[in-house]
Simulated scan of single mutants.
Amino acid sequence: MTLSLTHAHGDRITVAHEGTGTELFAYVYRPEAPWEAPKPYLHPVRTLSGGLVTDYRPNDHRWHKGLQLTASHLSGQNLWGGNTYVHGEGYLALPERVGSMAHVAFGEVSAAGDRAVIAERLTWHPHGGELWAEEERRIEVCDVDAEAGSWTLSWTSSVTNRREEPLRFGSPTTHGRPAAGYTGLFWRGPRAFRDGKVFTADSDGEDLMGSQAPWLAYVGEHDGRDGHATVVFEHAPTNDHAGDQGTHPAHWFVRSAPFAAVAPSWAFHEELVLAPGDTLDRTYRVLVADGAWDREQVAAHLKARTW
């Protein structure tokens, strides 16, 4: 199976599967509205048969854009977008706290055979524009399985603190709001995926909020066409971060109502503190599959693929 890549310079990179003619995803890196904390994102993301599995600027949260790396609370700034949660006051419009993640350059943009690679350098900024962090990002299509009707995206980000003081990664939950630990890699599913099925290797349902598991699957049903899609999020075993409170494993943020959303949060219950000059490394895989996969099917597929 062959992948192709089209680069509209200054705007986006599109990766397509030539066997099916499907555009698997677009990586959009041009900056958008300042209020939405400009940052690159993937949308649309599709299954091999063309089923849509991401949403873009929904009317409830305009800053939700497909699949993107976010930082909802970062040393008092909001690199997530929209209103900022303030304990005791709720979500407030505080534009002076809304920052950005800016594209700098691509180190590699390529497609050959069944692999496609986007390697990028980015900088992270508070609202005032100072340099707070530098990121090395690598997004790769690493496994196209036409027989299974699936493909896999890997995402690796290495974020280095360029401040002279620690960067404190948090979330609304670390700032006082229960069950709202969203930050880090964040997926917003299409409106049709509301009330979808969520499960891990051992558990089902939204009691998974704030829990830990090596992977989490979301099954949704399409609008406009028949059938389902399954999106599986998996974090690398190396993602534990040794911080000032010991290791810092991922916890899942997941909702199926009032909308579909998943994030392997890097600061759900406790802040993650990154010292000056230190680098935070995170690697994830996202499996995008046609059909409603069950627990056994997901587990068997993942077990056959090593890190």
Rank of each mutant, 00 (worst) to 15 (best):
T2F: 10
T2W: 07
S4L: 03
L5W: 01
A8G: 15
A8R: 15
E18K: 06
G19N: 04
Y29G: 04
E32H: 14
A37R: 04
T47E: 03
S49Y: 02
Y56K: 08
R57A: 07
W63K: 05
W63F: 14
L69C: 01
L79K: 00
L79D: 06
G90P: 08
Y91Q: 06
A93P: 14
V98D: 01
G99S: 12
G99N: 13
S100K: 00
S100D: 05
M101I: 09
H103P: 08
D114Q: 05
D114F: 00
E120W: 00
L122H: 03
H125D: 05
H127F: 02
G128Y: 09
V141F: 04
S158Y: 04
R162L: 13
E165G: 14
P166C: 12
P172W: 01
A179D: 15
G181L: 02
T183D: 12
P190H: 03
D204N: 02
A213C: 01
W215G: 15
E221T: 03
H222S: 12
D223A: 11
G224E: 13
D226F: 12
D226L: 09
H228Q: 11
A229L: 09
T230P: 13
H235Q: 11
G243H: 09
H251R: 02
P258H: 10
S265Q: 12
A267E: 05
A267L: 04
V273K: 09
L274Y: 01
T279S: 11
R282F: 04
R282E: 06
L287P: 14
H301N: 04
R305G: 14
W307G: 12
